[in-house]
């Protein structure tokens, strides 16, 4: 409904100023197309193509460009039908270690993403509704991890929560025993939250800032309490940046390697670590590829949400 109503606005926007003639526009379109092409080609060649290739490898198509890796790798299932074989998938999906890692990966992603968005929303709302020095301090603090390479962050977090770490030292001074969180999933979650926080805070607080104050005051004048105003006015109006923050955070965490590699246990650990182990240490690239496609499948569900959110916002602005 709304789209049809907004079509005229879209037409007005794209109709060129009176001076532009048809052939010139065509030329401009070609120029634009070719200027935009290089990064697309780069991604097609080094993201799209390898994904197709690796998918073929994962179902046992070991010819062509996959020949080298199939020769180097061990435990490679070769195709027994023209379309390939599901043997590698079958192997992995009956592998207890993989299933455990998959579960851990999903749980860490859910818990960390929820925590990040909750914190970012809290900080963003505090900044929007209260303001002042405390709020600025808080948001400034949340940006700090952006300054720190992930490798360092992971290692710093590991030592902080280790057996001789800060928390255990403080508790020991009072004669209390604090649990060792290093090399458990707790530090993996802490590390994931720590490293993902800045992006979400930037996205969400910028989204919340652009909610007009007049709307908030109108809701309040109509008798809505603080909570009601937040839930049914502010958050829905900033929905798109919130969804973008959520999807980027979730995708970042589900594929993360450094944080779980440094701070997590040997097993079960997140799939990023396991993928790298199967690839390098165990030299089983096909099994590694199966893991990659399992993660891709989950991530593409999340990514679809992102694309949908962007289209929705473009529609609202009458651009589609």
């Amino acid at each position: 409904m709304t789209t049809t109503l907004q079509k005229p606005a879209e037409l007005q926007q794209t109709v060129p100023p009176a001076g532009a003639t048809r052939p010139k526009r065509l030329g401009q379109r070609a120029v634009g197309f070719f200027m935009a092409l290089p990064p697309i080609l780069l991604i097609a060649l080094f993201v799209g193509f390898p994904i197709v290739l690796a998918f073929g490898f994962s179902i046992g198509l070991t010819g062509g460009l996959n020949h080298t890796i199939a020769t180097i790798g061990q435990n490679v299932h070769e195709a027994d039908a023209w379309w390939g074989t599901l043997a590698a998938y079958q192997e992995m999906f009956t592998n207890k270690r993989f299933l455990g890692d998959l579960l851990v990966t999903v749980i860490v992603t859910l818990v960390s993403t929820a925590t990040v968005i909750f914190l970012a929303l809290g900080i963003g709302l505090y900044l929007k509704l209260k303001g002042g020095r405390m709020a600025r301090l808080l948001s400034g603090l949340a940006i700090v991890p952006l300054f720190i390479p992930v490798v360092i962050a992971s290692w710093a977090i590991l030592t902080f929560y280790s057996g001789t770490g800060f928390l255990r030292s403080v508790f020991a001074l009072f004669g209390l025993d604090f649990p060792v969180w290093a090399f458990t999933m707790v530090t993996v979650i802490i590390g994931s939250v720590w490293t993902s926080l800045p992006f979400s805070v930037l996205m969400i607080s910028s989204g919340l800032q652009s909610v007009p104050n007049a709307m908030i005051e109108a809701a309040r004048d109509a008798g809505a309490g603080s909570l009601r105003t937040i839930v049914s006015v502010i958050v829905p109006m900033a929905a798109v940046p919130i969804i973008i923050a959520t999807t980027f955070t979730a995708i970042g965490i589900i594929g993360s390697f450094t944080v779980p590699y440094f701070t997590g246990p040997n097993s079960p650990n997140m799939l990023g670590v396991d993928m790298s182990n199967y690839f390098s240490a165990f030299n089983q690239p096909q099994q590694s590829a199966v893991m990659a496609f399992t993660v891709f499948l989950i991530a593409s569900g999340i990514a679809a949400l992102y694309v949908w959110a962007n289209f929705r916002s473009a529609k609202e602005q009458g651009k589609v």
Binding site: P39, I43, V47, P50, I251, G255, F279, A299
Partner: peptide, 27 residues
């Protein structure tokens, strides 16, 4: 479509991407 396909680099988890890239790099 171009704008969104750029997002492909971020839509796929990095480690998975590198594992798939490795086969091509070997070749």
């Amino acid at each position: 479509f171009f704008l969104i396909s750029l997002f492909a680099t971020n839509a796929f988890p990095k480690m998975g991407l590198f594992v798939t890239l490795a086969a091509l790099f070997y070749a």
